[in-house]
């Protein structure tokens, strides 16, 4: 069955069910985990915990990384 996550403010539907963990989500989105920090429902998730962080439908996930800035 399809399930939904809110990623960076946009709803994304997973037709085959959610990725089990944050690491799997990043793989699914083809994002290099080494350069990313995440927040789930406003709580920061450390990179070392990505593989142990389970996802549930309806969560709001922010994926953030460094860019150039002054």
């Amino acid at each position: 069955m399809s399930e939904i996550l809110k990623i960076n403010g946009q709803e994304k539907t997973f037709e085959e069910g959610l990725p089990a963990t944050l690491s799997e989500l990043l793989e699914n989105l083809k994002i290099d985990a080494a350069t990313v920090v995440a927040e789930i429902d406003g709580q920061i998730v450390e990179r070392k915990d990505f593989a142990q962080t389970n996802l549930t439908a309806g969560q709001s996930i922010e994926l953030i990384r460094f860019v150039g800035g002054g």
Binding site: N8, K30, T35, V37, R65, G68, G69
Partner: peptide
């Protein structure tokens, strides 16, 4: 050197400036 934080663009490739 200063750097900033932004949302990852999940639709496009993002380069890693770091």
């Amino acid at each position: 050197v200063t750097i900033a934080l932004r949302r990852v663009d999940i639709e496009n490739d993002n380069d890693n400036m770091l």
